[in-house]
Design a protein around this nucleic acid. Sequence first.
DNA 1: ACGGTTTTGAACCGTTTAGTTCTATACGAT
DNA 2: ATCGTATAGAACTAAACGGTTCAAAACCGT
Lengths: 184, 184
Amino acid sequence: MGRPKNFSREEVLEKAMPVFWKHGFADTSLQDLERATGVNKSGLYTEFRDKEDLFLACLRHYLESQDKRGLLTKEPLGWKNIETFLKNGPLNKGEQQGCFAINSMREFAILPDEAYGAITGNRALLQHLLALNIEAEKPRMAPSAIAEMVLSFFSGLCIERNLKSGKASSARKVDNFMTALRSL
Amino acid sequence: MGRPKNFSREEVLEKAMPVFWKHGFADTSLQDLERATGVNKSGLYTEFRDKEDLFLACLRHYLESQDKRGLLTKEPLGWKNIETFLKNGPLNKGEQQGCFAINSMREFAILPDEAYGAITGNRALLQHLLALNIEAEKPRMAPSAIAEMVLSFFSGLCIERNLKSGKASSARKVDNFMTALRSL
DNA sequence: ACGGTTTTGAACCGTTTAGTTCTATACGAT
DNA sequence: ATCGTATAGAACTAAACGGTTCAAAACCGT
């Protein structure tokens, strides 16, 4: 029986994620990660294969925690869920602005294929859940068509959260967008 | 009178920009830039103060060239221009996918304030031009409200261009979005 | 106390980075 | 041809990088 670990994998992910979120993969150094997590390099390397592995684990951790919010599965399904998703989906917690996944889409050129897969998989799920909510409202337009439009708009809202004013105008925009959607 | 330069500033910007666009600021090295431009480091440093200066110059160069396209100033102003902007605004030229400015919004945490200023300035202009086109259609909803919604949707379309399937579904989405807008 | 094991922490390693320096080259003017 | 100047190219620099190694520390069992 050896010396006990003084960190948990979960803790490391919780603490590393905001750093990757804010700075991106390329501009987040192992030293940044050491500082954020309070775990030194050899500790990190016992838990993760390399920097990419840690990034991927953070991304998956993030996607799982977002899924758990269940914004699009609340009964009754409908426009209300769509509105909640658009207003509360992009985060606004300190330096956690917008969406780590959407921000990471910019870095696909340098991220591992698994990151691409995780994000596209999550988007497919979101689109499906959006479509279920839209279907419940019985619009004239195909629910899947509306769903993909909503997802694009959501993506735009998220990337805009990188602006200082990103949150300020968001709710109004969502209200206006909902007005437009209800006409379809 | 010394030895003549065998590159122009313009050429360097044209060649460096796609590299920054694809890889981002942080993951683009001086060596990458040397290779892309065919100009070696001391050449680049005679023309630009540092890497940030070159990035900023590329960004400005990009924004200017996008403005020159005049997608939103064609007469007669109206929905047609909005549609053209949404369909043709995000680029689809080899590795130049989407929008260099939108992609760069993810990197504000590490980019100079001037980059932030250039992008927000350009967005303000786009929003204004969008509003003029919308105004010409005399909608019931405030043109500025519709304009900012369009800009968010555009931003979403651009970030989605980082997906392999980004272009494929875009036109249909724009058509559907235009249907929604015309109801406002 | 000792031994075995695992973790922490510090040092190490080779490579890469942005930026600097310096020499050889290429030009125009005389 | 020579001189002065500016550029291209190569070498250099200190620091940073991701990952590795190894010694000290912390645990449990005997």
